[in-house]
Design a protein around this nucleic acid. Sequence first.
DNA 1: TATAATTTTTAGATAAGGCTAAAAATAAAA
DNA 2: TTTTATTTTTAGCCTTATCTAAAAATTATA
Lengths: 218, 218
Amino acid sequence: MFSLAEENYLKAIYHLESKTQGAVSTNAIADAMATKPSSVTDMVQKLADKKVLSYIKYKGTSLTDKGKKTAANVIRKHRLWEVFLVEKLNFHWDEVHDIAEQLEHVHSTELIARLDKFLGFPDFDPHGDPIPDKHGNIKPTEKKLLSELNKNQKGVCVGVKESNSDFLQYLDKKHITIGTKISVLGKEFFDGSMVIQVGRDQFFISKKIAENLYMQTN
Amino acid sequence: MFSLAEENYLKAIYHLESKTQGAVSTNAIADAMATKPSSVTDMVQKLADKKVLSYIKYKGTSLTDKGKKTAANVIRKHRLWEVFLVEKLNFHWDEVHDIAEQLEHVHSTELIARLDKFLGFPDFDPHGDPIPDKHGNIKPTEKKLLSELNKNQKGVCVGVKESNSDFLQYLDKKHITIGTKISVLGKEFFDGSMVIQVGRDQFFISKKIAENLYMQTN
DNA sequence: TATAATTTTTAGATAAGGCTAAAAATAAAA
DNA sequence: TTTTATTTTTAGCCTTATCTAAAAATTATA
Ligand SMILES: [Mn+2]
Ligand SMILES: [Mn+2]
Ligand SMILES: [Mn+2]
Ligand SMILES: [Mn+2]
């Protein structure tokens, strides 16, 4: 059993590992967790003792299989609770993260099994992120960023990269959500901006927006 | 905002106050929380600083209005989550307490407001205990213990006093649950045992059982 | 009322998790 | 290849929540 602090470290390291190749640096973890590098060193040494990650002084850390599974399980809980909050309690998708941050630390495998069933065994959370199965496995999906599409390509929005409130509220204003069809009408190669079509609306979006929307093109 | 430990102390003191008259003793709190009296003294001094209880050395403590409201709110969350677990996730009434012990510490008034609505604004938890409203008020109910009933009296089971697994499973075996009609066919004044009728079944129960079932007689 | 038993508090330790400041190792620049 | 800058670790301290052992206050008993 892992403490709340330990679970949060494992989760952060798991996400960092998936974003970069090789061992995760102490500073990167400190940044991600808004804490100090010295605190990270302490915790990482403790987690190495518990065999959930391997740590080499000055060289960084990487999760063991046990660590990956533990982290994925916390992420599974987080995302299932987010589905619950949106689907059952009618929260908006920009309001659920902080509450899920707390709920993810409730320990009960039976609870999560039943919640999963109650929600109809969802595959994705409200932000389009995949929900790991009970073994910690995530089925790979072929998605690309909207910014990678070219003129005249189209697809369906399947997720958001960032999910802070400002961004999600912008998407709402533009009527973009998971499942929305988007066509690229124009793309400016100088700054990466685009003109896109959403429903009957056509409008301009910046590169920053396009880089935070995951699309599936078939 | 109160820590998990502080919330648990407030809850325990709240329950102790409702069971006895006058200030709550340090030892009583230590017993209820399975901790040491010295730990209780420390925490009680801290909670007195925070104005949620009044504490006089060697004389015991009693909750202030602020303390009562805070405690009632934790209890409200606990009981609403228990309703959720039983009504929505199909847990059995003897399985939900430990999970609710964790869920009750999730901080979000919006979450509880929506959960309350989702559950249809329930008045009682799965064990028949009343759910305080958002202001911490509990509507008084006229219930008495089955052991207080006499021969030929009858009523409806509206709650259980103890709710440990063994007792709840005994009740299941005898088909007694919240809402079950029970008639007292006989009562032995020597040991307080009874013969009762539940549905078509008639059987013997000990005083201990009768002292843990709340009844409403109309 | 003096003595004994019980309850409660204080003093001092410990463990988890975090911080600052200084030291050590590594990486970058000259 | 030195020197400088950056990263990482160590050392020492803090807070919260616990504990044990000893002291103090209260209550019960003789
Ligand atoms: Mn989230
Ligand atoms: Mn999410
Ligand atoms: Mn309970
Ligand atoms: Mn209950």
